Simulated assay, not measured.
Amino acid sequence: MSRIGVGLMAAALLVYLAVAVWLAVMFISVGTPVSIGMGITLLVLAPLGAWALVREMLFGFGADRLGRILDAEGGMPPVETELTPSGRLARADADPLIARYTEAAAAAPSDWRARYRLGVVQDAAGRRKNARASIREAIRLFRA
């Protein structure tokens, strides 16, 4: 189901880019300084937005692939504590778990599995920025 959503987002991205370029050309063809500025802005921002979306899609594909591999191997971190109603780790339980998985990742710096597990635990603790960095590093290690 999520692959269908990704396909729809890719199609929407192509439509967006086509419309943005068409509008940019139309703005520039008007010839006033304001319209030329708007056209140039569209020509810069549209590809920048597309690049960001493609980058996030590639991250999602990579993270999903590694998660499926690790799950098939039975290597996903087990749920060791009670979760909050939102599905997160309780604050009191999060720090010791993150410390343990951080030590495991530091002990095996070239092991993508350890880095991915750290990212999963960080995400469960609500530390999205750190989790994304850990999973991004796991993807990099997997490719290397």
Rank of each mutant, 00 (worst) to 15 (best):
E80C: 08
R88L: 14
M57H: 13
A108L: 13
P78C: 04
S35V: 00
L45W: 05
V30G: 03
G37A: 04
V25M: 10
W22N: 15
G75Q: 07
L45I: 15
F27D: 00
V79C: 03
R91H: 11
S29G: 07
G75A: 14
L89V: 00
L70N: 10
D93W: 00
W51P: 01
G49Y: 09
L42R: 02
R100Q: 13
V44D: 00
S29W: 06
E103V: 14
V34K: 03
T32W: 02
L48A: 13
A107W: 07
L83H: 06
E56K: 06
S35H: 05
I69Y: 12
A106L: 15
G74K: 09
G39M: 01
A63K: 12
L83Q: 09
L89I: 05
R65A: 15
A94S: 12
M57S: 14
I36S: 01
A108R: 14
G87E: 08
S86Q: 10
E80N: 08
F61N: 09
A92T: 05
I28D: 02
L58E: 14
E103K: 15
A63V: 04
D71Y: 05
M57W: 14
P33L: 01
R68S: 14
V44G: 04
L97F: 03
P47L: 06
T84H: 07
I98K: 06
W22V: 09
A92F: 02
P85K: 06
R65T: 14
E56W: 05
D64P: 01
L42M: 04
F61S: 08
A94Y: 10
T81M: 12
A106T: 11
R65V: 10
A50M: 13
T32K: 02
A90S: 06
L42D: 02
S29M: 04
R88A: 13
E56A: 12
A108G: 10
G75S: 09
S35R: 05
F27R: 01
P47S: 06
F27Y: 06
S35C: 02
A99W: 03
P33M: 00
A94Q: 06
A92G: 06
T32I: 01
V34Q: 06
G62S: 08
P96G: 11
V25G: 08
L70Q: 12
R88E: 15
L23A: 08
A72N: 08
S35I: 01
F27V: 00
L23Q: 13
L43R: 02
I98C: 08
A104D: 12
I36Y: 00
L83D: 09
R100F: 03
P33Q: 00
A46C: 11
M76T: 10
T102I: 04
L45R: 04
R91F: 14
S35K: 04
T81I: 04
A105S: 13
D64Q: 09
F59G: 13
A107C: 10
T41V: 07
M26H: 11
F59S: 14
F59D: 09
V79H: 10
A108S: 14
S86V: 04
W22R: 14
V25Y: 05
V54N: 12
E73W: 15
A108F: 08
G87F: 05
M57V: 15
M76S: 11
L89F: 01
V44W: 03
P78K: 11
F59Q: 09
F61A: 13
S35F: 03
G62C: 11
A46H: 06
F27H: 02
R65C: 12
T84S: 14
R55A: 13
R88W: 03
